[in-house]
């Protein structure tokens, strides 16, 4: 059984551009930071075929704001967990490579990523969509952070982009107002404290 330190070093030896800060150990788990698809697929190949992490558990989709991430949970025969991450280039360029050639059970996980996050996973066999309804409109991805259920009309199946933008603008304004109020309160408290100290010094 290899410890995580050896595993980490063997990965860094093979992929020199992954520095030490790409890794994090957490008990029985080794986390690797997100890499772009072209590099990810060679990394995945190396980890599965040579480091023998050949149990594929699940994928997790993640909306990181500027781009999307996919976390792959792998384990080996010694019960060690390895979390690999693949990231897309941006919110608009959502290409991601499929791990279906390595693990056939990834098929439904990746179909979910396509439907719920709108990640363009390439390399899957032809088939039905999963798991959203057949009539679901295109360009509506319910697990994205900027997609809100309250602006989706379930009867006409349309998303009210204008109302959503207006609500987002109001939310940002409210946030800015609250931040300004908090800063003003802190400044006032500081000024009061300074004055009290001054008075105390004067009394002395």
């Amino acid at each position: 059984m290899l410890d995580f330190h050896t595993l980490k070093n063997s990965i860094i030896e093979r992929f020199p551009n992954l520095s030490d800060e790409y890794f994090r150990e957490d008990g029985t788990r080794l986390w690797v930071k997100a890499v772009l698809p072209q590099e990810f697929i060679t990394l995945f190949d190396f980890v599965v075929k040579e480091l023998r992490f050949d149990n594929f558990h699940m994928t997790v989709g993640l909306d990181s704001g500027d781009y999307f991430e996919i976390i792959y949970l792998l384990s080996n025969a010694e019960n060690q967990m390895l979390n690999l991450r693949q990231r897309t280039v941006s919110r608009d360029d959502t290409f991601a490579a499929s791990v279906y050639p390595y693990f056939e059970n990834a098929l439904f996980h990746e179909r979910e990523l396509i439907d719920l996050f709108g990640i363009d996973v390439q390399g899957l066999p032809a088939g039905h969509r999963y798991p959203l309804p057949d009539k679901w409109p295109d360009d509506n991805y319910p697990l994205r952070k900027d997609w809100k259920t309250e602006f989706f009309d379930k009867k006409t199946l349309t998303y009210d982009h204008e109302a959503a933008a207006e609500a987002e603008r109001l939310r940002l304004e409210e946030e800015a107002r609250k931040k300004a109020a908090r800063e003003a309160a802190i400044a006032a408290a500081k000024a009061k404290k300074a004055q009290q100290e001054k008075e105390a010094q004067a009394n002395e």
């Binding site: 959203l132 309804p133 679901w136 319910p142 259920t149 989706f152 379930k154």
Partner: peptide, 12 residues
């Protein structure tokens, strides 16, 4: 009534 799932995006 739809229960806790009533407001979900795909629930009628």
């Amino acid at each position: 009534s739809g229960g806790v799932f009533g407001d979900c995006y795909c629930v009628k």
